[in-house]
């Protein structure tokens, strides 16, 4: 099964008060040097069957009409390759 990832971000010109609140909290928590934070949404779609151009076109249509509000948000669609997917559990939860 292939995974298609849709990332949705507020357009640069739209104020992101949630991202700002996160950014303001960072110095207090000891994280210096982060000048800006923007918060977005990530959708992971598990696709049945092969992901071809037709499937991607449908996903873009879905993102355009439903997952994102293109009045205020941009989106990107990408296929997550198997290697990336496999490495993910390892990256997660690793303590510094």
């Amino acid at each position: 099964m292939a995974r298609v990832v849709v990332d949705v971000m507020l357009k640069p010109e739209i104020l992101d008060p949630q991202g700002q609140a996160v950014q303001r909290a960072l110095p207090r928590l000891g994280y210096q040097g982060i000048s800006d934070v923007r918060q977005g949404k990530r959708f992971e779609l598990e696709v049945e069957g092969p992901v071809d151009e037709a499937v991607l076109a449908r996903v873009r249509e879905m993102a355009e009409t439903f997952l994102a509000n293109t009045v205020i948000e941009n989106f990107t669609v990408r296929v997550e390759d198997a290697a990336e997917a496999a490495s993910e559990p390892k990256a997660e939860g690793v303590a510094p």
Binding site: L10, I14, L15, P17, Q18, N69, V71
Partner: peptide, 17 residues
């Protein structure tokens, strides 16, 4: 109505949260 595009624009999180 904004999501339906019957009206222009969108409503976002209050600036003070």
């Amino acid at each position: 109505l904004c999501e339906s595009h019957l009206l222009p624009g969108a409503l976002t999180r209050n600036d003070h949260l």
